[in-house]
Structures are given as C-alpha cells and as structure tokens.
Design a protein around this nucleic acid. Structure first.
Lengths: 254, 254
DNA sequence: CGGTATGTTGATCTCAGTCAATCTGGGTGG
DNA sequence: CCACCCAGATTGACTGAGATCAACATACCG
C-alpha cells in the first residue's frame, strides 16, 4: 500500500469540469480534499475495489476512465457507469462496496477515507451540499441509463453513449470532431446491455447513416451531432411491413 | 392549495420500515419532519409534479405508490421508479424536477420544502446523513434497475419486480403469500421496459412454471419464492437449437 | 513467429414488439 | 334488472431486432 501514502498530487490545474455534478468544488475545497487524500495510478484492468469489499474510501477521478460494474450469476457483466475526470465513486452501501471498480484505461484517482469525508461534511456545509450534488449527479445519470436501456434500441443507445462522451472534454476534440473511445467493444456492449457483435453492428449502422466515421477501433469522427440527437428520440423499432392483409395500397385510380 | 396547509397528519405509528433506506429516521426526527411538512392525499392518476416544474418541495411516501416517470420523444413512457411507503422523492435537479411523479393508486405523501430540509441538514448532522442514506438507497435501486434492464429477459425482470415488492410489507402478506399489485399491466410494462402484452405473457410464463398464480389482475399468489430468485440469475436466453449442423446427439447405442 | 486478445462480418434462430381479436369486470343509463 | 359501453387484461399470428454460433481479420504481445 506504499502508493497510498500521501504524495504530492502533481495536479494543480483547476478541478476538471463537466456539466452539472463535476467541477463543483471550489479551488480551496479541492485543495482541502487533495490535502487529505492520496493520488493513485492505475493501468488498464487494475482493480480499484471489488464488490463486497469493506468500503473505507471514496474516490475522485483525476484522469482516465473507471468502470463501475457488477456480474450476474451466469458470468455476464453489466457496466453500471463509466466514471470520468471530475466524477466521484465508491460510496459505501451498508459498509461495503455494492459494485466493482476497475480501470478501463490508464487512470488516476484521488483516494479519500469515507470517515474523513463525513467529518468534512459535518464541519463544512459547503462540502456537504457539494457531495450531495455529486451523488445526485450519479443518480441522474443512472436514471438516464434506465431510460436508455428501457426505451432505446441498440443504435440509439450507442448514439446516447457517444453524445455523453462528447461532453467530456478529455475525450472529444471539438476542432477535429474526433471522439476518443477509452473502452473496448466488449466494454461498450456490457455498458449498453448488448453483446460485442451488436455493438459493432450499431457502429456500422451509424456509419452507413453518415452520422459517424470509424477512424480506428478507439476513435470515431462525429459527422452529424444533430443527427445523433434526433436518432435518440425516434421510435425504438420500425413498424412492421404489414405483409399479409390487404397491402393497404391507396387503391389509386382503378 | 388548501389541502397543503399544515394538518394533523393522523399517522402516529412508527416510520414505515422497509430494508435499507427506509425506516431510517428515529421517532423524534420523523416527528420533526412531520411538524414542518404537510400531508397530501392523492387519487389514482393525480399528478404530484411534472417534469420541468420548479422544484420547491421534497416528498415522503406515507401510503400507496407514486410513479416516477419520464416520457421520450415518440410518446413512450418509462417508469423510473415506484416509490412506496418510507421512500423519499422529488429532489431538485438544477432547481427543477427531472421527472414526473403521479399516484399509481390512492396514496398519501408528506410534503416538505427543500429549503427547510437543507436547513435541517445543516443544523442536524443526523438528518444530513440520513437524507444522504435515502438518496443512496434510491441510487442503489436505480443501479439494480440497470442490471435488470441490461441483463434480464422479460420473465426475469418481472420476477425481479415481484421479489422487490414482496419486501414491501404493505403489499405482501407472508401468511397467505398474497402479493398486491398496485399498478396496471401497462404501468408494469413501462416499468420493465416492455409492452403491456409482453408483461402479460411473462405473467403467463411464470404461472405455467408454477412460480406464481394469478388471483386477479391486481394480486398474485407467490408459490415459489426460491424459484423466482433462481430464475433471476439464470441465462437471459436459451441457446439456439443448433438445427443445421450435426445434432450433437450422444450417438447412443447405434 | 506462433499465440492470444480484440474487432468485424455472415448465418441462423429466439425473444419480444406490433397488430388484431377476444374476454373480463365495472360502471351507467334505461 | 338488464343492455350497453368502455377500459383493461389476455391471447394469437406475424415479424424484426438482436443473441448466438462461427469464421476470419487485425493488432499486440512475448
């Protein structure tokens, strides 16, 4: 555990900002958090914690992407969330971690004892409301996932995922419209509730429709942002061709 | 708004308890909450608030079931959660409600100004941590929904729903194994991310398998609790019959 | 250079969405 | 009391989206 001793974080820029829920700590508060937490470095696949572990620390993502996942009986994995810079994760559920967390790509996190954070929340109402805001952010995100999984088809879910990551500055370059994908196709499948192959087919579909262009397996060019947004709200499934009954032709002239 | 004046709540029993996240307030804290909140009565279909409304109050369910839902572009509805006695809902998202809330059946709620609750959280660290616990409870529940929607088929999702409601004392009588269903089949479909008909078929399937018995459209007898739990963890889909290649028969005697 | 992990595409079959018809129970008016 | 209506529940037939199996391509290793 030597890497967990307090080290110079070496990260002095502003707290990473991304929509609501991130970038919520002021510089001084972020400093306070950094002072009592330790910086951790992770390589792809490294496990931050496992489901059921005693939950003693909360984490803040500084760089990279952390997979929050849970496995079901038959060995399938569902990725519940992908935590990006600015996100908080690892709050205890009855003293234990409810899910597993591991690095989807090289990543850095701040590790902060939960007891310590609770104390800070008691002492500083600001911290309290901002931690609550972070939790609420994760909660809203989970609800968005429910909407996606419950109402969208595979292409729409992929579009939603891409649009989510377009909002992460670390992974989208607005100049070139290039979006880095920090996860494998399998990861993406487990995240979207489909299998690897269906994810690939969804990519192919979006490319055929001219909405994206696959540059390589870990980056796509976003060609039509509005098109992706429109796709999201469309019907989950096209109406059947009503092949059997009378074809409902506008029995025109006759 | 006359019904929102402070009235005698008429509910003096212990705070309703259900697993983690409910029953978390002590008698005195619950009293404090009741003192500053007003009791509301709802009939089936009554709207507590609508998506986008200015969020000024938080709610606690005292009786009945509140649907938390959101609609998508093409008019489809996803029920994000069913809030039962003991649950909290209606936390603001950037000052507004992110979802709609309405009564799935006759219901009672406590209505508490969000400002007031924030103040109570500042003054009483106990309240703060317990509100956080309630939010975390909703968050864990949302994550369970993601698991269900992402990895389970229609029957398994229905089984998960039934098992969830078996844990609500108001709706399950352990003596008779009778489970009251406070929602219509359409509601259930919107909750499970399927359509009404698929929900009905899932009910029929569970009945054929001897796990439940449909008494009437709003109550089922739970015949095999363990069977329902086993079903949850099984594979999402049976393997195909591999009809074409060699039938993989254990070329027995010959 | 073989070996392994990952990405991609094709063929096939199942689950669940869609349309449609029927059944049921609860009200309402005559 | 009954005929009627209407909303909800149920069942059947058909079909498309996506899971599964399989094969092959590509990249990344030691």
């Amino acid at each position: 555990m030597n890497q967990w001793s307090n080290v110079d974080v070496g990260y002095v820029g502003p707290w990473p900002s991304r929509e609501s829920g991130a970038g919520l700590f002021s510089a001084s508060e972020a400093d306070m958090i950094r002072r009592v937490s330790s910086l951790q470095h992770w390589r792809r696949g490294n496990i931050v914690y496992a489901e059921g572990d005693r939950a003693e620390c909360v984490f803040f993502v500084m760089a990279g992407v952390i997979r929050i996942s849970r496995c079901v009986g038959n060995g399938q994995r569902q990725i519940l969330a992908l935590r990006v810079p600015g996100d908080m994760f690892g709050l205890p559920d009855d003293g234990n971690y409810a899910n597993s967390a591991d690095a989807a790509c090289p990543a850095r996190t701040l590790r902060l004892p939960w007891q310590r954070l609770q104390q800070m929340m008691r002492d500083e109402p600001q911290i309290q409301s901002k931690v609550l805001a972070k939790v609420m952010h994760n909660f809203r995100q989970a609800q968005a996932r429910i909407m996606s999984l419950g109402q969208q088809n595979a292409c729409q879910r992929l579009a939603s995922f891409l649009l989510d990551f377009v909002r992460v500055p670390d992974y989208f370059d607005a100049e070139t419209s290039l979006l880095q994908l920090p996860v494998s196709r399998s990861d993406l499948g487990d995240y979207l509730g489909t299998v690897r192959q269906s994810t690939v087919r969804a990519f192919a579909q979006l490319e055929i429709q001219g909405l994206i262009r696959r540059v390589d397996s870990h980056s796509v060019e976003i060609l039509d942002l509005c098109g992706l947004e429109l796709l999201q709200t469309g019907p989950r499934r096209c109406a059947p061709q009503q092949g059997h009954g009378q074809p409902l032709q506008e029995s025109c002239v006759h």
